[in-house]
């Protein structure tokens, strides 16, 4: 009787402490980028602007959520020997949906993100969560885990993009905030802004993303010392 109750509790679709933990853990102590080291490639390539980072973050949340859910629902039917190929095909299908949707809805972003949308397939966050979580848990929990990890990844992406776009181009979401462009230099009436700031071109280049993520990891570990590498 007690066992049946426990089983019912586990399979029920509620929202208790355990479910909240699934959503909030990936934001801090189990962050996919800064702790699990997953999904670095796209975090570097698409963070030159907030807009691209936001599109990418939404795409990844969509893919992690549904791939976790579908794989978890099928987990007892997938033979172990071919599970990689089955998982990859589930992911690839979802990514193709995202790619075609973007092509139709936001063609500019689609062109700028180019191969990196396709590379969501090999974004280790997706595959890593499938292996680590969805193959062992029910669809509802897996879905929450997928959302949590997608959002945890998206937050880092937006933080990096914020620094890189603000200091690299002086803009946020394409709107000019600080710094000098030729027309701003000529316009002496706009003295309210930080017109003296000259754009740091290093921030637009790839290596700067490495430095920014390194700094985020540094800050994160200084703030949460339990994550520090002992070795």
């Amino acid at each position: 009787m007690a066992q049946a109750q426990v089983a019912a509790k586990q399979s029920s679709i509620g929202f208790g402490k355990a479910e909240r933990k699934l959503l909030t853990d990936p934001l801090d102590s189990n962050n996919p980028v800064t702790v699990q080291v997953l999904g670095i490639c796209s975090a570097l390539a698409v963070t030159t602007g907030m807009k691209n980072a936001l599109v990418m973050a939404i795409a990844v949340v969509f893919v992690t959520m549904f791939s976790n859910m579908i794989t978890s629902a099928l987990r007892n039917a997938i033979p172990k020997a071919v599970r990689m190929i089955v998982q990859l095909i589930i992911i690839a299908t979802l990514v193709t949906i995202v790619e075609l949707t973007l092509k139709a809805v936001a063609f500019d972003s689609y062109k700028q993100l180019s191969v990196f949308i396709g590379l969501i397939i090999t974004n280790c966050i997706v595959m890593g969560r499938l292996e680590a979580f969805a193959m062992a848990n029910g669809p509802y929990k897996s879905m929450l885990d997928g959302i949590g990890n997608g959002v945890g990844y998206g937050i880092i992406l937006l933080m990096v993009a914020f620094v890189r776009e603000l200091f690299g181009k002086g803009e946020l979401f394409g709107a000019k905030l600080i710094g000098n462009t030729p027309e701003y230099l000529l316009d002496t009436t706009t003295t309210w802004g930080l017109g003296w700031y000259s754009n740091n071109n290093l921030m637009v280049l790839f290596p700067s993303a490495m430095f920014v993520i390194g700094a985020i990891i540094w800050a994160h570990r200084a703030w949460n010392p339990s994550l520090v590498d002992v070795s």
Binding site: I213, W218, R221
Partner: peptide
């Protein structure tokens, strides 16, 4: 200490 390992690898 906080930069050891992963953080340093990024830099």
């Amino acid at each position: 200490p906080a930069l050891r390992g992963l953080g340093m690898a990024f830099m």
